[in-house]
Amino acid sequence: MSATAPHPEAAEAAHPDAPELVVDRLTVRFAGLTALDEVSLTVAPGSLHALIGPNGAGKSTCFNVLSGVYRATSGSVRLGGTELTSLAPHRIAALGMARTFQNIALSGRLSTADNLMLGRHRLTRTGFVSAGLRLPGGRREERRHRDRVREIAEFVGIEEHLATPAGLLPYGVQKRVELARALCLEPRILLLDEPVAGMNGAERLAMAATLRQVRAGLGLSLLLVEHDMDMVARLADEVTVLDFGRRIASGPPAAVQRDPEVIRAYLGTGGNGERSEST
């Protein structure tokens, strides 16, 4: 991890509805393997919190619990005053949590615009009959959603690609489409799973600038999993470090970078086995 000064921007005003996300002693076990061991962290409203660690540290497992894909063995996850650990993914999304994925999960044959419209699904009020029969109410609602899709595409910088099938877009643009689709859910908190993975240097810088705009312009809370430590140091207010499922450090980026346990984890000194990409 290279030492980088914390980014100079002060925390922007949070979205008026931005809730606090509190993870309290979260534990996840799979057939005797402890993937998360009493992990705690708090994402303050309007902040950008980074969750980092070597491969196999438990970052993806944590994201999957937060979004309802995995069930916790014990512990608590609260968004505002609502406990999430027993809720299905669609219920969690309805509370205002959206996520992107480490591996792109777009519908390649659909246009970019239609991929973004999928993100508007939970906000749709018109029934299938009205939509299918193209009744006036359904048409008006679709126009509103299409207009909002266009606004979000412009905000993220992909408006010129709205008519293009997502599968034909360059990889870096597809990553932006995935971010835009998450924003189309109108979230209050956004989980970003390695948003610059596989990008070149210019694309990484551009995505970092976009994430600053998302935070400043929309006032969202962001929880970021990322291996680009320079990017983490520039963007994050707070960093939580996992290693083999346990929290080993937390605090501002500069302090975390100097922590001996973090240095040990990243350099591999004292390691106790091979890591798996899956956790």
Rank of each mutant, 00 (worst) to 15 (best):
M1K: 03
T4F: 00
A5S: 11
P8Y: 06
P16C: 12
A18D: 01
P19M: 01
L21R: 06
D24C: 08
R25S: 14
V28A: 10
V28N: 14
F30A: 05
G32E: 04
T34S: 04
S40N: 09
S40F: 12
T42P: 06
S47V: 01
A50S: 03
L51M: 02
I52P: 00
G53S: 07
N55Y: 06
G56F: 03
K59I: 05
S60H: 07
T61E: 13
N64Y: 11
L66D: 13
S67F: 14
G68N: 15
A72P: 15
A72N: 15
V77S: 08
V77H: 14
T82R: 15
T82Q: 15
E83H: 13
L84F: 08
L84T: 09
A88I: 12
A94D: 11
A94F: 00
A94N: 13
G96K: 02
G96V: 01
G96I: 00
A98P: 11
A98Q: 09
Q102P: 10
A105D: 02
L110E: 04
L110C: 03
N115T: 06
M117A: 06
M117G: 03
M117C: 06
R120D: 08
R120L: 09
R120M: 09
L123Q: 15
R125A: 13
V129P: 02
G138H: 11
R150Q: 14
E151A: 15
V156M: 03
V156L: 06
I158M: 04
T164E: 07
A166W: 02
G167T: 04
G167L: 03
G172L: 05
K175F: 01
A182W: 01
C184S: 07
P187I: 02
P187G: 00
I189V: 11
L190W: 08
L191D: 05
D193H: 07
D193T: 06
N200C: 03
L205E: 11
M207R: 03
T210D: 00
L211D: 08
R212K: 12
Q213H: 09
Q213I: 01
R215I: 07
R215Y: 05
G217Y: 12
L220H: 06
L223M: 07
L224Q: 00
H227S: 04
M231V: 09
V232G: 00
S250D: 04
G251A: 04
A255T: 07
V256R: 01
R258L: 02
I263E: 08
A265S: 10
Y266W: 04
L267E: 06
G268S: 11
G271L: 08
N272S: 12
G273A: 09
R275Q: 13
